[in-house]
Design a protein around this nucleic acid. Structure first.
Lengths: 343, 343
DNA sequence: AAAATTTTCGAAAGCGATTTCGTAAATAAT
DNA sequence: ATTATTTACGAAATCGCTTTCGAAAATTTT
C-alpha cells in the first residue's frame, strides 16, 4: 500500500480534491453522508496529510531548530530539555543539531536549518572570540533572512537578537570567593574553553575576587587545555611549580579528570587541594569526593529561550527590540571544598 | 529584507521564474550575460531556495529521524553519534527525538515524523513487552506507509523491518560468568528495565551462567526498580536478606548509584561485593573504584543502522528481505571486580 | 409558482520550487 | 535567399495541500 494522497481519495470517490480536503476537515460545506464515507475511508487507509505540503502552504513548520556545540555536556542537555518542554507545550517540535565545536559544521547546520526547515533558531555558537568576522557573516545572514533567532550561553555580541546568557563573571567570582573563604591561598584555573568569551568572563570574576583580597593575579595559574592535550602531563607542571591549594575547572568532565589525577598524585581533596568545577551534571555527584560545582540552571535557560523564540515567531513582543536576559548561577557545595569557618 | 523567492528575482529582472531557476542552476539554456546578472543578484541578496518547496518537488527530504527513549543514557548518545556520522557522510541530516520513556510521546513523535518530514526512521522503542498490542499498531502504520524503518536495541518482534540488536543474552552470560570466575557466590541483579525484552535476555544469560555452575536460580535476587523508587531503601532489603557478594546492574547511572550506596554501607568494592554494570559511559571510568562495565558498542550500532536505512531509502538491498544484525558486547574490566585467579 | 436562500460541490489560485516542452529570434548551412 | 539549426527564453505541469469563489441543485419563503 503506497502512501495515500488527497488525490487518491478523490479519485476513489469520484469527487474533487477540495471536497476531500473539506470533508476531512469536517467542513459544513460537505454533506454529512459524503463526509462520513470519506472520513471512514481515510481512517481505514491510514491517510495522513503530507506535512511537507502543509508546511509549504502555511509558510510555517511549527518546529524550531536548536544548535549546540556538544551533546556530552550536561548543561546543553539540560537546555535542550528545557527548550523541548516549552516547545511541546506551545505546539512546536524541535530539531536538535550538534556541531561538535566545529565552525564548519555550525555553518553547514545553519545553512540547512535556515532555508525553511524551521520557524526559528536557538543557538549556542562555537565561535571563539578570534574567528568571528567571517563566521558572523554566516549567522548574520540568518538574521537577515528574518528568521527569528535566540542565542544563549555562547552568544556573539555583533549579532542583534534576543539572548539568554549566564552570569559567568559572577560565577567565577562566587566560586573563587568561596575557595578563598575556605582557606585557599593559591588558586589555579584549568580552562578547556580558553578562547571563548564565557571563559574570559569567568576568569574576570576570578580576578575580581583575588583583587578584593589583595592577592596579585598570576598569569601562570591559568592553564588552557585542548581536547587532545594530555591533562596529566600538563597538570604536573603547575602542581610542581606552584603551591596550589585550590583549583577552578571550567567544565565538568575536566573537573572530574583533574580530581582523578590529583588524587592519584597523592593529594587529599579537599584538604590539600580544593576543587570547584563548572556545570553541575551527572558526574559530579557520584565521584569521590563529590564535587562542589557551579550550576548554570540549564533547564531554566532552555525554557526562557523557547518562550522568547516562540513569542517572536508568533509576532508577540515588539519587533527589533531585542533583549538580553542574564541568568545567575548557583554554587552547589559538596565535598571537594572545605567548610566555611564559623564566625 | 524579507525572504527572497524565485518570483521576486524574476520580477526584478522582468523574466520568468523558470529562467531564474535555470540561471541559478547554471543551465546552458540561459545566456551567459543574464546568468551572471541573476547569479550576482541572488548572491548579494542571500537567496537560498526554500527547502520545503524542494522537499515537496523531490518527494524526499534527505533527512532521517532518530527516536530514542533517553538522552541521558550514554549508549543512546553513542548511537546518535554513529548515525549522524554516517548520515552526514552520505548526504543526510538527522532529526533526533527523545521520548523520555513515554509511550504517548513515542506515538506523537512517530506521527509527526512519519508524515513526510523524513525519508526514513531509526527507532529504539520504549514499548515494554506488555503494552505492545496497541502500540504496535502505531509503529506498524509507519511501516505500512512504506517509510523505511530500522529498529535497534529495543526492537519490537512483531514489526517487520531491519534490526540491529545487542547480544544481551550473551552479555548477561559473560558478565555473570566473569563474576563467578572471580569468586562471587551470590549474585544479585538490579534492573531498571524490568519489563523490557533486553532486560529479560540479560537475565536469561545470567541464569545460563548460573546453571553451568549448578547454582540454583533465586528469584529474590532479581530486584526491579522504577524511576521514582528509593534505591537506598530497596537495596537494604536484599543486602540484609542475602549474603550477596556480586551485583549486576542493568544501566549505568543505577550502577553508579548502587555502588555509592554500597560503599556508604561499609562494604568494600570489589572485595566484599563486586559490581558489573551495563553501558560503558562517561561515569564509569571516573568513580572510585572505576567500574567494570559491559560496552554495547553504541557508535558501531548507530553506524550500522544508518547504513542499512539509507540503503533502503535509496533502493539498494532487496525489498522486503529484512535482516537482523546482532552485535556482540565487550566487558571492560576495571576495578569494581576482582582479578581472575591465575591458572 | 416564482423568488430567495441554503446546501453541496468543483474550479482555480497559491505556497516555492523543478522540469518538460514549445517557440520566436538569431545564427548557420545550403 | 531559403532552409536548417542553435540559442534563449516562457508557458505550463507537477509536488500535496488549503482556501476562496462561483455556481448548480435543493430547499425554503413569499
Amino acid at each position: 500500500m503506497i502512501k495515500l494522497t488527497l488525490k487518491d481519495i478523490a479519485n476513489h470517490f469520484s469527487v474533487s480534491i477540495s471536497t476531500v480536503s473539506k470533508a476531512l476537515h469536517d467542513s459544513h460545506e460537505i454533506s454529512d453522508k459524503l463526509k462520513h464515507r470519506i472520513q471512514e475511508f481515510a481512517k481505514e487507509n491510514h491517510y495522513r496529510p503530507n506535512k511537507v505540503a502543509l508546511n509549504l502552504v502555511n509558510r510555517s513548520t511549527k518546529s524550531i531548530g536548536v544548535v549546540i556545540p556538544d551533546i556530552l555536556n550536561y548543561f546543553f542537555i539540560q537546555v535542550l530539555y528545557g527548550v523541548e518542554k516549552v516547545a511541546n507545550e506551545r505546539g512546536y517540535s524541535i530539531i536538535s543539531c550538534v556541531t561538535d565545536h566545529s565552525l564548519k559544521k555550525e555553518t553547514m547546520t545553519l545553512e540547512m536549518l535556515s532555508s525553511g526547515s524551521v520557524d526559528g533558531l536557538i543557538i549556542s555558537s562555537v565561535a571563539s572570540e578570534r574567528q568571528t568576522s567571517k563566521h558572523i557573516e554566516n549567522v548574520k545572514s540568518i538574521v537577515d533572512y528574518q528568521i527569528p533567532l535566540v542565542m544563549f550561553d555562547r552568544v556573539i555580541d555583533a549579532i542583534e537578537c534576543d539572548k539568554v546568557i549566564v552570569d559567568d563573571f559572577e560565577a567565577g567570582y562566587k566560586a573563587t570567593k568561596y575557595l578563598l573563604e575556605t582557606g585557599c591561598k593559591t588558586i589555579a584555573i584549568i580552562t578547556p574553553i580558553n578562547k571563548t568569551k564565557i571563559g574570559r568572563l569567568r576568569i574576570g570574576g576570578y580576578k575580581r575576587a583575588l583583587k578584593e583580597r589583595d592577592i596579585p593575579f598570576d598569569d601562570k595559574l591559568i592553564t588552557p587545555i585542548g581536547a587532545k592535550d594530555d591533562l596529566d602531563f600538563i597538570l604536573s607542571f603547575i602542581l610542581n611549580d606552584k603551591n596550589i591549594d585550590g583549583i577552578l575547572v571550567l567544565d565538568e568532565i575536566t573537573t572530574v579528570k583533574t580530581m582523578a589525577i590529583i588524587k592519584a598524585r597523592g593529594y587529599h581533596v579537599p584538604n590539600d587541594i580544593a576543587i570547584i568545577g563548572f556545570t553541575n551534571g551527572q558526574l559530579s555527584k557520584y565521584v569521590t569526593p563529590a564535587l562542589t560545582m557551579v550550576s548554570q540552571h540549564g533547564t531554566y535557560i532552555g525554557e526562557t529561550c523557547a518562550h522568547r523564540l516562540i513569542d517572536r515567531i508568533e509576532g508577540l513582543g515588539s519587533p527589533g527590540n531585542f533583549e538580553t536576559k542574564v541568568v545567575k548561577t548557583s554554587l552547589i557545595v559538596r565535598e571537594s571544598t572545605r567548610k566555611i569557618p564559623l564566625g
